[in-house]
Design a protein around this nucleic acid. Structure first.
Lengths: 95, 95
DNA sequence: AAATTTGGTTTATAATATAAACTACTTTAT
DNA sequence: ATAAAGTAGTTTATATTATAAACCAAATTT
C-alpha cells in the first residue's frame, strides 16, 4: 500500500538540495545556501549526510584565496530521488 | 523557489493517515493501524497531532462492548493536503 | 479463574532538524 | 598597521519529532 519514504530524502532541506543538483551539473555551497534559504550550519550538516550516503560528492578547493565547496549528485543520488518520487505516488494516490 | 512543506504533513505516518482519510468518509483506529503498519503507540500520538491541528476529528464510541475510535478528515485537513501536494511540486520540478 | 487478546494511552528514548557559537581566513576602512 | 566587517564554512548545543516500550482497562478464550 504505502512504500517507505527514504528518510534521507524525506527532509525539506535535503530534498531541496537534491532537487537542485538533479537539474545542475554542479553547485557550490553559496549557491545552494541562497536557493534553499538555509542557514550555513544546517546546510553544512545536511550536505555531509548526503555525502555519507553517497548521494552527492563534495569537493573543496580555492577560488583565488577564497574557499569553495562544490557539490555534485551521484548516480546513487539520482536513483534515490527517482525512488522517492515513485514512493510518494503511493501516498498521493493510494489504492 | 521552494514552497515550505507543512511539517505536520511532512511525516511518513501522518501523510499516510491523511492519504487514507482523503479517500474515505471515515476510518477507525484498527483499520488505520493495519493499512499503515504503524504501532498503536505511534498511531495514537500522530492522530492526536492531526486532531490538535484540526486536520481530523476523532470520535470515541463503543461497538458493542469494544471501544472504537473513528477518524474523519476535516475541510482544513483536505486543504492542507492539497497545499502539501502543491508545495511538493516545487521540489519535484524546481524552476 | 488464569491467560490471552483487543484497543488503546503514556512515558521514555532515539533520531532529526535547527540555531547559536565558533574558526579561519579576506577585505575594507581608519 | 590595525581594527572592523564580511565570507565561507564547521562544530556544538538545544529543541523538536518519531518511535518503541511499557503500561492500562476491559473483553474473550482456555
Amino acid at each position: 500500500m504505502f512504500k517507505p519514504l527514504d528518510p534521507l530524502l524525506h527532509s525539506e532541506l535535503r530534498l531541496a538540495i537534491i532537487s537542485l543538483l538533479i537539474g545542475l551539473q554542479e553547485a557550490d555551497f553559496v549557491f545552494l545556501k541562497e536557493k534553499t534559504k538555509a542557514t550555513s550550519g544546517n546546510l553544512s550538516v545536511q550536505l555531509d549526510k548526503l555525502r555519507d550516503a553517497a548521494y552527492i560528492e563534495i569537493n573543496k578547493s580555492f577560488k583565488g584565496k577564497i574557499p569553495r565547496t562544490t557539490c555534485k549528485i551521484t548516480p546513487q543520488g539520482i536513483a534515490a530521488f527517482q525512488s522517492y518520487i515513485d514512493a510518494l505516488q503511493s501516498y498521493l494516490n493510494p489504492q
